[in-house]
Design a protein around this nucleic acid. Structure first.
Lengths: 196, 196
DNA sequence: GCGTTTGCAATATAACCGTATTGTAACAGG
DNA sequence: CCTGTTACAATACGGTTATATTGCAAACGC
């Protein structure tokens, strides 16, 4: 019938603009006007592709998760140790571009505390990440599932905390990565002790 | 001359209401009207005691830091190990009241990423906490300052990450505390190995 | 070419925002 | 008692917000 455009691309453009705005002014600073300006499109267009501001914000989170998942899947061929390290290190911002992505991620994480819709989506992603991580730990150290899960939780929490400190500029990204690498490679607390 | 009231108490009441609002709706949901309603006072009163919304929000952060500092000072007589553990564990929300405080703290932490005024105030508090922590680690393990500082950063980051996961309800608070305790007591990576 | 459906842009609307302004009740000091 | 100052409360104002509504141009099937 009429005028066919690439919906997927339109949505992607808008969500990219959304991320820009979040990275600059936080989720608090997200308004349709601001996003429209960043995307250089009209408000009408955004309204056409997203039912509401809330729906847009949620779509932004879902795409962020999907993108991180794809980046992880791309490491499918690597050794467990490398994949584990990748998961832990990926979020530590090294470039300005990486910093934007992580800033957006933490903006969502923070609002998840008070917004239960966002928490649902985010919690599921966290759980998936933890399971992946645990599998690698199990493969790497040959411990049972319970121990691997606990170790995975610890590693991920450490990675989150380090990332947070890098974000508020209280920690150098390279230091954070060094700590994580040491944690993955030189671990002796599992009583099977690889002892570097 | 006229009508003397307790300024300190008035301000405290308003800031408490501010925290309530932040804990419920995030910093995004903070408006003078909302805070006024939570405090059961008029908007005029808030305006009388705080120059602007921004000043109120900042005062909320400063009071939060001061309160945490006081709680820490109250442990002055305890052993280094206990004080260290206190710093790490204090923020893990165990009660509903504690949860409110930590929620507010993380709301500020998240906006610090994009708001540089808040980052300044917050970064200084983080640095102070790290220094305290490092001193205890040094006393506890007898390592040099550089190593103690690195260990302190690691412990604090771990605590932050665990707390974050408790907040989004992906981790049980008791599990988080167990991990932290094990980290403080059963640490063997420092090559002085206390070996539990 | 024609009608229909899509893809928007433009505009209207109603709510809410921070802040400035104005008015007033209370009270301490002379 | 009176005067001056404080501590507000009430309200007005200009701006921004999300969203609903309206209208129109483009383009495909026929």
């Amino acid at each position: 019938m009429p005028k066919i455009v690439d919906h997927e691309q339109r949505r992607r453009e808008i969500v990219h603009a959304l991320w820009q705005v979040i990275a600059m002014h936080g989720l608090e600073g997200v308004s349709l006007r601001e996003v429209a300006q960043a995307a250089e499109v009209s408000i009408g267009r955004i309204q056409h592709y997203f039912d509401s501001r809330e729906a847009l914000v949620l779509a932004g989170l879902e795409r962020l998760i999907a993108q991180a998942g794809a980046a992880y899947d791309a490491t499918a061929g690597a050794a467990p140790r490398d994949r584990l390290l990748h998961v832990l290190v990926q979020q530590v911002p090294r470039s300005e571009l990486g910093r934007i992505g992580v800033t957006v991620w933490y903006a969502y994480l923070a609002t998840a505390v008070t917004d239960h819709r966002i928490r649902q989506v985010l919690a599921e992603a966290l759980r998936r990440g933890e399971a992946e991580c645990a599998a690698h730990v199990a493969a790497l150290r040959g411990v049972d599932d319970a121990r691997a899960g606990a170790a995975a939780r610890r590693l991920l929490a450490l990675s989150d905390g380090l990332t947070l400190r890098v974000l508020v500029e209280e920690l150098d990204p390279d230091d954070a990565i060094d700590i994580l690498r040491a944690e993955v490679d030189g671990e002796s607390r599992t009583r099977r002790g690889v002892s570097r």
